[in-house]
Nucleic acid binder design. Structure first.
Lengths: 253, 253
DNA sequence: TGTCGGGAGGGTACTGAGTACCGTGAGGGC
DNA sequence: GCCCTCACGGTACTCAGTACCCTCCCGACA
């Protein structure tokens, strides 16, 4: 019944457009009563995202099943990959839906609320992880937003290419950036591709001046022993340059 | 006319709730025709965010007026502060609206699309700045999302406190985290409050172990001479812990 | 076997947002 | 005085979503 309604709805949406299709049209094609449509889908928009509820539940369960010693940022990145998997399970459907939501403002707005629920689930988990920490909720909200943005960036680029290419690799790459900026790069051998962000902290050769910073920038001085990286920064240097130097020192660029 | 409609609408929304108020009720109280309501507000939701269009235009203009040598992340943070200023101009109204949007799902969804427009404006600017860079659009999208999330975190906390306290300082603090993670903290003297992230890098006394990190974390070893800070991190430590250590070393906690 | 109860599906009528179309009246230039 | 424009108002319509009630099927049970 759900499937019949979804199939009928998408057929008509593609034929004549979302707004030009009424609920009566859908139920007429599916051969069911109008009342039944709203039994299965609380609104006309919901029929476009039939698997969202289940996926959100899966994500919530996944996060709830996290162990105490999980690395939080890594965990939410893995949770985001669950969403990608749902999209990748049915590329043709996902691409059709993408085109639809791109050009119908009402659906775009609805999709925002869908994404918002995912983001809040991630943020709630992170808030729990960071409870008691200074600025824990701030950090949780920012990381959740960054993870969602990175995921969506890769996902949409994959959808724009009609589902060609490796969506999983693209999302891994995008999430790697977030992990590099905010989180741990645990299990370096198994996950991070060579030369990608998200790798482990390591040491490089002796100091080479960065040039770009000029007189105001931070200056990486040395990366000496085999298991440590030493960064010497000038007092007064912007913090982001220090971070940039750390990244440079460990070979991220 | 706009003002009359907004005033009438909010009076009724507060008296009997948003969904219990029809557009006919609003126009009857305002003493105008129903048709005029939709002339000024394309939908019932729009009357709740009467200044959003102007603010979005202001932000777009602000970003378009950026110079070539602006630091992009700093610039989008300043753009976000424009939004805060709009909220802070009328605290009572903003708090009322916050309570309304918090409890009416339809308004919450609408607010998401409002926020989304701001985020896309920021992202578009950053995409321009990062054009040609590797993963430029990804970086732009993630930073825009992080800026919006930080801004909203501080804004909502201020709204929850009924507009008490210094909203500007809270947002500066939140945006400081984003700048620390992604961008520059230029002009250290003029902007960053003492003890907040986003300020200049400074030195502290000798090493004091952080405890929280445990065996897996990075370890700040020394902050020695008067104009440098030396951070020693264990190879394999998560980068975000290193950054946390840098922040700790320069006296941010 | 007859009957009862409950749940899935369906039909009807209503509310309310948003739109199309047209009427009207007040200013403003020629 | 005439015409043009435009803000405002009124009427009627479409359609999403809801409330209420009906029917039919199916298993339980006397």
């Amino acid at each position: 019944m759900r499937e019949a309604l979804v199939a009928a709805a998408f057929q008509l949406f593609l034929e004549r457009g979302y707004e030009q299709t009424t609920v009566d049209d859908i139920v007429a094609l599916a051969g069911v009563g109008r009342r039944s449509f709203f039994r299965y889908f609380p609104s006309k928009e919901d029929v476009v995202f039939p698997d969202h509820e289940r996926c959100l539940a899966d994500m919530t369960a996944f996060l709830a099943a996290s162990g105490e010693d999980e690395e939080p940022v890594r965990r939410v990145c893995d949770a985001a990959r669950l969403v990608l998997r749902m999209y990748a399970e049915n590329p043709a459907f996902s691409v059709q839906r993408y085109r639809l939501t791109k050009q119908v403002p009402g659906l775009r707005a609805y999709e925002l609320s869908v994404v918002w629920h995912y983001e809040r689930a991630l943020a709630a988990y992170l808030r729990g992880c960071f409870a008691g920490h200074r600025d824990g909720t701030l950090r949780a909200d920012v990381i959740a937003a960054a993870v969602v943005a990175a995921h969506n960036n890769a996902l949409r680029s994959w959808l724009r290419s009609d589902g060609q290419g490796d969506a999983g690799a693209a999302v891994d790459h995008a999430l790697g950036h977030v992990q590099a900026a905010f989180g741990a790069a645990a299990a370096p051998a198994s996950k991070a591709p060579a030369g990608e962000p998200g790798g482990a902290v390591g040491s490089t050769g002796p100091a080479r001046p960065t040039g770009a910073g000029g007189s105001a920038g931070a200056r990486r001085a040395a990366a000496a022993a085999e298991d440590v990286v030493v960064v010497v920064a000038r007092r007064g240097a912007p913090l982001w340059r220090v971070v940039q130097e750390v990244e440079t020192a460990v070979g991220r660029d």
